[in-house]
């Protein structure tokens, strides 16, 4: 537990209008510049936990957070559950980016898609925008495919390209953490491979948390794995340990495909 970027402490989460919490006292460390995978059957709460890490749940009123989620950012330790003002939440989301299951390009040009977040963050200088857009597209391995059509609509790209564009868009903000919510489940195997390579590549700059249904993906990609079941964190350890030699019977049953 040496080099943390984030951690949840006794974190519980209850959706609006529901009595029982969907997450129960979760204690999960997120290591810096590592990839942490969250696995578990549908409804286990892994996406709910991921979506708490950038407070995207706040879009819908009435949800309840309890406990702590600490972010060890540039300004030191901060419990993100204490953030109240919209400006603070905006800052949080610039530090903690998110990629969704379905690619979500905005209805604008490729360039504007990547520049959008930076413009929101107040970057106005045209040459700085140009540089950072190019850098982000290069870092996301789609510069070659896009450099001649930066001003065409992003909606004309293939699904895999769109997803890499979304990653570029998030990387451009230089976040501390990137959250991936099943980023390849809507993509074909080739695009999936490209996205996985990309995630492995960006971990030198950012810490990654990825929710996946695909256990090969978790074992290929991640350094640490958390197994969740029915709102509880059952087991967290190095990925090798979880897949080769898990402590819990439940983890072993899930990994070997006995349920889920």
């Amino acid at each position: 537990m040496s080099n943390l970027i984030m951690e949840t402490k006794d974190f519980s989460f209850t959706y609006a209008g529901v009595d029982a919490p969907s997450l129960k006292k979760i204690n999960l460390p997120i290591e810096k510049n590592k990839i942490t995978a969250m696995i578990g059957p549908s409804g286990c709460g892994k996406s709910t936990l991921l979506r708490a890490m950038n407070r995207i749940h706040d879009l819908y009123p009435g949800n309840k957070y309890e406990g702590e989620i600490n972010l060890y950012g540039a300004e030191g330790k901060e419990n993100i559950l204490n953030l109240k003002k919209e400006n603070d939440l905006i800052r949080l989301r610039q530090d903690v980016g998110m990629i969704f299951q379905k690619p979500t390009p905005f209805p604008m040009s490729i360039y504007d898609n990547v520049a959008y977040g930076m413009r929101l963050a107040g970057v106005k200088d045209k040459s700085e925008l140009d540089d950072r857009v190019e850098k982000a597209l290069q870092d996301s391995a789609i510069w070659k495919e896009t450099k001649d059509r930066l001003n065409t609509s992003a909606l004309g790209m293939s699904g895999g390209q769109q997803q890499r564009l979304c990653i570029a868009r998030a990387v451009a903000l230089k976040p501390d953490v990137m959250l991936f919510d099943e980023p390849t489940s809507a993509l074909d195997p080739i695009s999936t491979g490209a996205i996985e390579e990309l995630i492995a590549e960006i971990k030198k700059d950012v810490s990654v948390v990825i929710v996946t249904h695909n256990m090969q993906q978790a074992s290929r990609l991640s350094d640490y794995t958390a197994f969740m079941y029915l709102g509880d964190l059952i087991e967290y350890d190095k990925t090798d340990t979880i897949f080769m030699n898990p402590n819990e019977k439940l983890t072993e049953d899930y990994i070997t495909g006995r349920f889920g």
Partner: peptide, 15 residues
């Protein structure tokens, strides 16, 4: 799609 709203918010946009 609601994902588009979430993606915008996740990039640091105000509502």
């Amino acid at each position: 799609p609601k994902e588009l709203r979430e993606a915008g918010i996740a990039l640091g946009g105000s509502k």
